[in-house]
Design a protein around this nucleic acid. Sequence first.
DNA 1: CGGCCAATTTGCGCTGACGCAAATTGGCGT
DNA 2: ACGCCAATTTGCGTCAGCGCAAATTGGCCG
Lengths: 232, 232
Amino acid sequence: MALDRSLIAGLPLFEGLTADEMDELLRGARSARYPMDTAVFEQEAEAHSFFVLLDGHIRVVRTTPDGHQVIVRYISKGEVFGIAAALGRTTYPANAIAAVDCVVLVWPHALWPHLSARFPVFGANTYKTVGSRLQETQTRVVEMSTEQVEQRVAHALLRLVNQTGRKTASGIEIDFPISRQDIAEMTGTTLHTVSRLLSAWEEKGIVVSGRQRVTVVDPHRLVELSEGRKDK
Amino acid sequence: MALDRSLIAGLPLFEGLTADEMDELLRGARSARYPMDTAVFEQEAEAHSFFVLLDGHIRVVRTTPDGHQVIVRYISKGEVFGIAAALGRTTYPANAIAAVDCVVLVWPHALWPHLSARFPVFGANTYKTVGSRLQETQTRVVEMSTEQVEQRVAHALLRLVNQTGRKTASGIEIDFPISRQDIAEMTGTTLHTVSRLLSAWEEKGIVVSGRQRVTVVDPHRLVELSEGRKDK
DNA sequence: CGGCCAATTTGCGCTGACGCAAATTGGCGT
DNA sequence: ACGCCAATTTGCGTCAGCGCAAATTGGCCG
């Protein structure tokens, strides 16, 4: 059962490919489903595949030797991930966990050199992705170096909302389950501090939140907080 | 006056190229000298070139709107830098400052697509470099999220020593001028705290340091500190 | 429908690291 | 050789945010 090119036709990652090329590219892939909270791949494991997320949200997490977890990023629909091959690695540098039920395309790791040579546009797009991730990650280093916890959490929420926000009656909701602990692991703080911040913000009408759920009501105020303006 | 291929023949970045290919690659380049403390390129500026460092050390610094500085990385001999083109950018994301007198090779930005296609090995090596920088930067995020200042500074020093250490009578010295302020900007702390740490470490015989100079005497103890072991 | 458990909230005390400020040092240019 | 200035050191007070702990909540499973 061949994969249909309509699966990927709209994605920026494959922009510039002809219909035939998409078909050929897909011939090397298979699709797979990962239920919520299951691992797509694990840190240090042999990188046998690379992936494109067709549907859902993936949490990429690094675990330290002493048991700390840090969320490296969330992957959204249409993005490549697990591209150890393109980075010159043979093992995955982090864990990838399905934040909701997910559908992915899977290519064998060994096909990367062939595919990136055969479809230069696809290769270039992928490398661009790596490039922007490097930029983002550096930005994050800058934030962690120069900003207070409140600003960092505000930034993180804004990023999530822009990346994956879903409009609702009361505001823009992050459209996958996310706990205080998760937000803490994205921002280098503790779930306690995140909880206090969200409570305070809810008091002020900036967000509404509950179990594994955050809705931003007043993005503008959040932007102000993220810039460190503390005025009332 | 053509550039001689012996300039780059030994560098891993150009590994896999034939002598003729190196000559051809160099035909697109020119060399330039940057005295200590001058800028090779500046943040937000149009990315007209990309570079390979032939000699010296380059400090890559991001400046925030509110005037904070963060050192993104140090570039050592033989590395590419300023490769905005490969990342799909048209401006530089940071400043590059010569930490000592430097010699660099310069290619016009516009040549990148051609060169990476013409010399796939060179392209692949460059992308690998980007990949490892992404890994490193993520590691840094993890450190900033989970470690105390003392551990982070210890890690930073160890990295510098491994990357650019020069053996001396008393230990391994970082072979370019580096201030307390610089170390602070690498680790997300203040020059005061760095100064206190170095003083304490000097007391214990782990390092020797002076003006813009740091020598690691006992790397082993420093590794212990970087792992958080605080035992006497 | 009731119980169980994970997620969240909140109080309290502590402290690592910062901010401010002043003193000191070392090296470089004239 | 001297003076100037940037780099460094160090003391002191403060506080943001953590660690610990206990209470509360909400939803899912049986």
